[in-house]
Amino acid sequence: MSSAESRTDSLTSSDLSDHAGYSIVANHLTKIYQGNVIGLADLTVSLPFGSVGLLGPNGSGKSTFIKLLLGLIKPTEGDAWVLGKNIRTDSMAIRYDVGYVPENDSLQDNLNAVEVCKLFGIASGLSSSDAIQRAHEVLDYVGLDEARYRLVKTYSTGMKQRVKLAQALVHDPPLLLIDEPTNGLDPKGREDMIRLLIELRNAGKTLVVSSHILPDIEEICEYVMILHNGKLVTSDSLTHILNETSSRWIVNSSENKQFVNILEENEIPVLHWSSEQILVNLEQTDPQRIIALAAKNNIGLQRLVRPRKTLEQFFLAALNIEIGESYE
């Protein structure tokens, strides 16, 4: 299942009975809050293992989706499975395997970082001695040294984010649900957090990272799912998304006008050109042919590059499609 379309179709009963290939499966998952506010609307999606980015503007349903998976809120309709376990019937079993990093503060001010990790380690089922040992291990990992013995209320935003990550890791869950991990962080803090998450991904954890900061998702995730107004816009692998425009190349030559004529004579589609550059579609043609044509016609070829599409472009385009605008 590689295309967005096939993932967003209704799941068949055989799909529902076999979630082996997916970390999270949602089937018509819907959440309507009091006052008829739509949190999530009929979401059907299958997310792979690895690192998944949940993208969407504020209020798009990212946090609602995560909270539904954790059982913090109850679905109005539909169902979902986390690591093959049903959120309605196996909620407790899911929580042994999931670590949650919430968006809001969540930390009790009267505790220090060790106590936070120990307390939630015990709540996760660790023995007291395991919890204290594990608390120190995860705090070492996130880089809190002596500060771990200070009360949380004295911490900066970046340190609080790290403590939240540490408490989520204390029981070593295979899946982490992370809500806006870089929110409010300065550039250094953001860089550190991304580094930690990438390291976790490389250590084999499955990460579901919700964010509206696209470069963060681009750095961390291999797969993205875009939500808007509680609805799924698209979900696909990042590689697939970013390579979508691989047929578009930029050509810079000494004689752009002349070269455009040559390209068109040779049936190479020119999408756009100016005195600075030519944009061509090489879907049916090898780039070597451009080089050969330039050489044959004594035209100096200064640059031939395939620009990468950024996630931001994809995201904006996806949202435009969703609200009915054209995608250019």
Binding site: Y96, G143, D192, L196
Partner: peptide, 20 residues
């Protein structure tokens, strides 16, 4: 942001996962 919040890159250590 104090100096002690530096990340040393010691890597993530997993745990044997035994629950009470």
């Amino acid at each position: 942001e104090p100096e002690e919040a530096r990340i040393y890159g010691i890597g993530y250590r997993s745990w044997k996962r035994s629950f009470q």
